[in-house]
Amino acid sequence: MLKSAVRSFSVSATRNAFARMQLLGTVGSVNFRETKNGTKFINYSLAVNQYDPSSEDNKTTDWFNVSVFDEKQISAFEKFLRPGAQLFVEADVRQRVLVDEEGENKHTLTSLKQVRFDVVRFPKKLEESEDTEGH
């Protein structure tokens, strides 16, 4: 006899809705900063290429700004990562609508807060890139 597979859902504990993004891209600029109360954080740009058959070179690049607040991740960025590294990034996404004083122009600001990352490819070592530039 076959049993019916029924999954029950509990309504007693609700989960918060969330938006999460996964990106594979190349690190551009990296800015180490501090909040007014002294908390370290990082803002960095991530270039993500997409296949685009209408483009001359068949790709377009979108740039995303990512913020990092986790101390362990900040430490890893300080030691190992710089522009040119390729990362797989998982980030929480928030959007805010900004309206000018007259209320006529609206802009949507998307914020990415890094949850975790994996290094896909480290950038060339500084010595290697300096040697190749001189030749």
Rank of each mutant, 00 (worst) to 15 (best):
R94S: 15
D118G: 04
E104T: 08
E78F: 06
F41R: 01
K113N: 15
Q73N: 11
V99D: 03
Q22C: 07
S4T: 04
Q95I: 14
T110W: 08
A47H: 02
A76N: 09
I42G: 04
R15P: 00
F41I: 15
F18W: 03
L24G: 00
F64M: 09
L109P: 01
L23D: 04
Q73T: 15
F41T: 08
S10D: 14
P83I: 01
K40E: 15
S54K: 06
E133I: 14
T108D: 06
M1R: 13
D52E: 13
K124V: 00
V97P: 03
F88A: 12
R94V: 11
V68A: 03
E102R: 07
R33G: 02
V30A: 05
I74R: 05
N65L: 06
P53H: 08
A5E: 10
A13D: 13
I74C: 10
N37W: 04
R15Y: 01
N58G: 00
F88R: 12
K72W: 07
G134C: 03
L23Q: 00
L81H: 00
N43T: 15
V120D: 09
V11I: 05
F41Q: 04
F69E: 07
L87G: 02
R33S: 11
W63H: 03
V11Q: 07
N65D: 15
F117V: 05
E101K: 15
E71L: 07
Q95M: 15
E101N: 14
K124P: 01
G103Q: 06
K36C: 04
N16I: 04
Y51V: 14
L87M: 02
I74S: 13
N43H: 06
V30M: 11
K59M: 10
L23V: 11
D92L: 09
N105P: 00
R121E: 13
L98E: 12
R96Y: 11
D118F: 06
F9Q: 03
S75R: 11
R116G: 12
F88S: 12
A5N: 10
P53M: 07
D52A: 12
G134W: 05
Q73P: 02
K106G: 02
A13C: 08
R96I: 13
E101G: 07
G134L: 15
K124Y: 01
G134Q: 07
R82F: 13
D62E: 14
G38P: 08
K106M: 13
F32M: 12
A5Y: 08
S54P: 01
K40V: 09
V30C: 10
A76M: 10
L112K: 00
N58I: 10
L2P: 14
R82L: 04
E56W: 04
V11W: 02
F122D: 03
A85Y: 02
R15F: 08
S111V: 14
S54N: 15
L126V: 12
L98I: 14
S54W: 08
A47P: 10
E90K: 01
L46A: 05
Q73G: 09
F77W: 07
F64Q: 04
K3Y: 00
D131W: 07
H107G: 01
E78G: 02
K72D: 14
V120W: 02
R20W: 02
G84C: 08
R7W: 06
A5F: 11
S54V: 02
S54L: 13
L126K: 11
V97A: 04
R7C: 06
H135N: 10
F18G: 01
T14K: 09
S67A: 14
T14E: 12
N49G: 07
